[in-house]
Design a protein around this nucleic acid. Structure first.
Lengths: 259, 259
DNA sequence: ACCGTGAACTTGTCTAGAGGACTAGGTAAC
DNA sequence: GTTACCTAGTCCTCTAGACAAGTTCACGGT
């Protein structure tokens, strides 16, 4: 078994924190590698001479930091880092669409991960107040909502919902589950709305229980939220996309002019 | 006291999850408002008829979601949302610097929060491999590291460390604790490096214990990380800034051309 | 008026033990 | 060979109690 230190009863930090610290150090130093199993609760109890709840509290601390994941009946394992996906700010460049690839597919292929999209749902909904504001719609307008889940190498990494004004989507494959080559941005341009630019609002928070389930992440793993609005060349908003990404799976890259 | 429901022993969810769910609902529905105190442990024990550790586990769940914060000796409170600060992508525009304001001061004033910068430390360091790569330096070069903490309305919201090649900083006020009006970007331009653009890499993760302490956040609150590289008009990198922001205090806005 | 003390409240930490649920592997019955 | 069961190991949930540490406030003494 791995060499753990000992706890110091005269230390001002409580034992469970010391134990968590010792385990954290072993992980950070690579003595416990991603995917490896931590000592079991009974081993930790034996080793440190504390009660069961104390070692559980230590492990709980590491789970809250997202460093480890517990699997019922099997053990606690160092979280294996999923492939980090860098999203460059040119990921919506027209040249990708012209090759018949959606942004996600193009980016995933470039980084060498097997992309997959599932749980696609298309509905026709009334707009919310916020959505009406962003899409310059009146409150009795309707939108097409396209939600889906993205996976890389079989691991869920993102869920997203796009909202397109019904007036734009009508008569296009946007209302189909399979929206065709190049994704919905290709359809929007074919419908005569040449894309001009996007605005993206990025933030981060802890996932809701629902999101945890769909994204298959444990507690202690935050999500990146990204709210994107697409504008055509006349500054008319044509789409709003609300995406939730598993945080440690992504690095978003942006270029900002100094002006 | 607020109306809590009851737990259902025949439910397949364990009691502590049910209790957490009931409390979560009350918060989401606004029956427990930000800043308000949750029922104390003894009240919850009385009400639900469970053991102390069970209600603690329920509260622990909510703390992990960042919904509530516990204060030793006082109680558990619904987390009050700090002022959300929107960072527009033009926040480094030259016009701000020309008014003698750093990006943070300009942005904070615009959004009506009292800005403060403290814990400023300036050191001369050897570069790391990654830093050398980003700043196009050789591995035996040195950089000036400027770290500081930002507060809005007295609440810590961000810590940041800037790295400037010694060759650029030499002879400027960049090496002083007080870098003068307009911030270090103004100094860099005065030194003859006209700024061209920035790249920013955004991600998110759980804070380290150190960051938790400096940013005064509880467990269950993620941080946004932002790694910015500043380039002059000749595409020469002149600064790298590593910032850690309290996630719920920020929304980052970017504009992306469709190209 | 001021200060200190203590009581009563809060959450934090730890102990000791019980039963449950899930996993993996071996074994016996078919 | 296949299936069913059993068992050992794992983490999950809950109980009951103890002491510690931080906060608040009223009460008495000065």
């Amino acid at each position: 078994m791995i060499d753990l230190g000992e706890i110091d009863r005269s230390d001002d930090r409580p034992p469970y924190r010391q134990i968590a610290g010792l385990l954290r150090d072993r992980i950070k130093l690579g003595r416990l590698k991603p995917g490896e199993q931590l000592p079991s609760e009974s081993e930790l109890i034996q080793h440190f001479g504390v009660a069961r709840m104390t070692v559980r509290q230590a492990v709980q601390e590491l789970r809250g930091e997202g460093l480890v994941v517990a699997e019922h009946g099997k053990g606690v394992f160092v979280r294996s880092a999923p492939p980090v996906r860098r999203l460059a700010s040119d990921r919506f460049a027209r040249r990708h669409r012209e090759q018949g690839k959606s942004a996600f597919l193009a980016e995933a292929e470039a980084s060498g991960h097997a992309p997959l999209v599932d749980q696609i749902r298309v509905t026709n909904e009334a707009v919310t107040a916020e959505l009406a504001e962003r899409l310059h719609l009146s409150t009795d307008d309707r939108v097409i909502a396209r939600s889906r889940r993205y996976l890389a190498d079989g691991v869920p990494v993102e869920i997203a919902t796009s909202y397109i004004p019904e007036r734009i989507a009508r008569g296009t494959k946007i209302t189909d589950v399979n929206s065709g080559p190049g994704g919905i941005y290709a359809r929007i341009e074919e419908a005569g709305h040449e894309l001009g630019h996007f605005t993206e609002e990025v933030s981060s928070r802890m996932p809701t229980p629902d999101e945890r389930k769909v994204l298959q992440i444990g507690s202690g793993v935050p999500v990146l939220t990204l709210l994107r609005t697409a504008y055509d060349v006349h500054e008319v908003p044509v789409e709003v996309c609300d995406t939730v990404k598993v945080s440690h799976a992504y690095i978003l890259e942006y270029d900002v002019p100094a002006r």
